[in-house]
Design a binder for these strands. Structure first.
Lengths: 228, 228
DNA sequence: AACCTTCCTTGACTTAAATCAAAAAATAAT
DNA sequence: ATTATTTTTTGATTTAAGTCAAGGAAGGTT
């Protein structure tokens, strides 16, 4: 697919007039990444931001002991690394492809120009950042106020909800990544899923999770409590 | 002080032409708040956002058991409640004055108009939101990857001004609020401060903290580990 | 001063979840 | 297929920090 077609499909750019799109297409550079390949690290100088065109990228923090906290995953059409565009010059987290992926790099200058010229572009960017703020809002709430079973229940319900109340969902990530996203470790996830299965709240087969008792799951999510 | 003078001093609005300032001044409404008074609650409909003109406001989440996680404090000149302006219509957290305060309320419509008319205003807003994203970034990192002593050490160092700044700092909040900001409880803060004092890392007198051993404090902050 | 809140500290105890270790399953590679 | 690598599970143990309870200190008010 041509770069300009790819760009036209990215929500951030959709709606831009054709000449603008062509301009963007002329400036961006594409990058192919293997699984596990790093895109940038915390503290790196940021001279632009990225858009995923295929594959999946994780944005994460590392502790000094090597524990990883995933902030979020970025899939096709989504952007990452925009924050240093506005305040500060360095990336506040790490980015790494978790599967074979392609990303576009957009230099800061292009970006600032678009904002100045097009108030709708600015609005779209504001909307994007505020969505991310909401996400962090929830992440902080869960990390601080819910126990791990509550976070896991909330995540399962979130996955099921986005598919319009589907009773069976499929994880698009490993359970290890899920653990890191929920601020815990694989062992703990494994134990909780096991316990929930034995109580017929869910049924787990590999990456497929079937919700058997939504009501209980909601209680665990809301109260943040669940006795193993 | 006149409302227009107050507004002119708010970073978000500084730089706006006089007619714009006058327009803003004509639209905003002022609100006086007593200590402990709520401004909005999570889930409330948002029809605008706020600027603190005096006093101090806390933005926080509550667990179902009543535990509080403070997201941040908002002081004079700073804004809060802008996120629902762009995505969603409801406040994602609670806001409450922690001392006698005054806030200005700015309706959403005014705001959207300013953004459309003035790209610099949009830029300033983007800069503000990205600053907040950085803050959440750090909060998530600390909650998930550092133990409480690490978070506390980082906070003390932050107050002192990361470089070889002031050796004596004064908390502007209660230790209970500090606990809530760091995602823990007053007892834990008390114990850690006590231990650090007994090891001559700091000296605590009421709300004043004197740094005696910055090196050790930095180690605790960076490694996130400290054996009580 | 004496009173009353609010805030802070200390001690004994409990608990959720991390760590360590090792095996079993599932995927991918040759 | 067979091996190799990654992912997941299970069990025993440790630990950081939360809970409960009660006593002090500090600050504001009359």
């Amino acid at each position: 697919m041509k770069v300009i077609e790819v760009i036209a499909k990215i929500p951030l750019f959709s709606g831009l007039p054709k000449e603008q799109l062509a301009k963007v297409a002329g400036i961006v550079t594409e990058q192919a990444l293997d699984k596990g390949e790093a895109i940038f690290s915390q503290g790196d100088e940021a001279s632009g931001f990225y858009v995923v065109t295929s594959g999946m990228v994780k944005i994460f923090k590392l502790s000094s002991e090597g524990k990883e906290q995933i902030l979020h995953f970025v899939g096709p059409g989504q952007t990452f690394g925009e924050v240093p565009m506005f305040s500060g010059e360095r990336f506040p987290a790490n980015a790494e492809a978790i599967e074979k992926s392609r990303v576009l790099f957009l230099p800061r200058t292009l970006f600032l120009e678009l904002i100045k010229q097009d108030p709708f572009f600015a609005m779209r960017m504001l909307s994007e950042l505020s969505k991310r703020l909401r996400h962090f809002n929830r992440l902080v709430e869960e990390l601080s106020l819910k126990e791990v079973p509550g976070r896991l229940a909330a995540y399962i319900l979130y996955l099921s909800g986005s598919k319009g109340g589907a009773e069976e969902i499929t994880l698009s990530i490993t359970k290890g990544h899920l653990a890191s996203l929920l601020g815990t470790i694989p062992e703990t996830i494994s134990r909780i899923l096991g316990k929930m299965s034995s109580q017929d709240i869910i049924r787990v087969q590999g990456r497929k999770i079937k919700i058997l008792n939504r009501r209980t799951l909601e209680e665990i999510s809301e109260s943040g409590k669940y006795f193993l």
